[in-house]
């Protein structure tokens, strides 16, 4: 078990290196360097720029530049933003990351709370009115684009009904403690539901088909033949088997929550990583773009790592491969 986890973590390292190379390569492939578009001042000798380039190591061979960059990253130095003068990339990202993380977790919580019970109930009553309703909702959730659903939600629930705020993370700075917590949740409701819509639909569909599949299996019949109660059959024998594929799905979803937030955050003007990312692209703020891309990649890797670990806990057949 521990061996498996350690081996899995070791595999994580080369993947991380390859990921960083891709991110670095993409940034290098983009035309220009930090001085492009700034050589307008005729009073500055082009020689000075050249000296600066030399000093910044921009004339070094690409592999050397990569190693230097990677070494700084390992030390936690992501450089400075080109757009927000004098601000380190790390501080910008750290400032936004919690907002996105809260939104992601909140959305994931809603997704699971809604999708799993509905999926189970649908599977236990297949082809019922409820099941057809859930299926319809599922197709709706998968078909409607995030941004469109977000806009409609703002129109009805924020503007027409006034139940929820349409943007931001918090009303004012004068509230603290539990009040602040509630206010943050209040702000997260609409973007959280929007972000989780597609996920809810797909988890629900997966859960339904998995539970349905497991309920028809021989070992469930055995459990019933042993005289196990319906509760026991469902919660002990069915769910643990049905949840295995869901864990894999959650591994992917973990990364997708952060990247998926890019559009949703934009729609709700939610000050998270997504809005920062979009702004950096518009401003050609390469260090920030690189840092966020790397971070998204790492979350996807971590998501998969966690999925693999949980997978091996839930399914004993995985442990001794």
């Amino acid at each position: 078990m521990y061996k498996y986890i350690i081996r899995r973590i070791l595999v994580f390292i080369p993947m991380l290196i390859v990921l960083s190379m891709i991110v670095f390569g993409l940034a290098k492939a983009a035309p220009g360097d930090p001085f492009t578009g700034r050589m307008l001042d005729p009073n500055i000798d082009p020689e000075v720029y050249e000296q600066q380039r030399e000093a910044l190591g921009l004339n070094d061979p690409i592999p050397v530049q990569y190693v230097n960059w990677a070494t700084r990253i390992v030390k936690g130095d992501f450089g400075e933003s080109m757009y927000y003068k004098g601000r380190s990339v790390a501080s910008l990202v750290w400032e936004r990351l919690p907002n996105t993380l809260y939104l992601g977790l909140f959305s994931l919580a809603i997704t699971l709370i809604v999708a799993i019970p509905i999926g189970i109930y649908s599977a236990r009553n297949p082809y019922s009115m409820f099941d057809y309703g859930a299926t319809t909702f599922g197709f709706f959730g998968l078909a409607v684009p995030n941004f469109f659903f977000g806009l409609v939600a703002i129109y009805f629930f924020a503007i027409k009904l006034g139940w929820f705020p349409s943007q931001g993370t918090i009303t004012g700075t004068d509230i603290t403690g539990f009040q602040e917590f509630l206010d943050r949740i209040h702000h997260m409701v609409l973007p959280g539901i929007t972000l989780g819509l597609a996920g809810t639909a797909s988890y629900m569909r997966y859960m339904r088909s998995e539970v349905l599949d497991v309920l028809g299996s021989d070992y469930i019949r055995t459990a019933k033949a042993k005289g196990m109660s319906e509760r026991n059959v469902l919660y002990k024998h069915t769910l643990r088997n049905a949840i295995i594929p869901i864990i894999t799905l959650m591994g992917f979803e973990f990364g997708a929550l952060l990247s998926g937030a890019i559009i949703t955050e934009q729609v709700f003007s939610y000050p998270g990583l997504g809005t920062l990312f979009i702004n950096s692209i518009t401003n050609r703020d390469y260090p920030v773009i690189m840092a966020i891309t790397l971070l998204l990649g790492v979350t996807i890797l971590i998501g998969n790592l966690l999925a693999d670990i949980f997978y091996s806990i839930v399914d004993p057949r995985i442990r001794y491969d």
Partner: peptide
Amino acid sequence: SSKQMTKLRGNEIAMVFQEPMTALNPVYT
């Protein structure tokens, strides 16, 4: 009733199935 049946199944009438490969739950010892 189905509740009374759970007391009877396994206790008074037990059953062995055809497929031993799939008749046991894979995730429990």
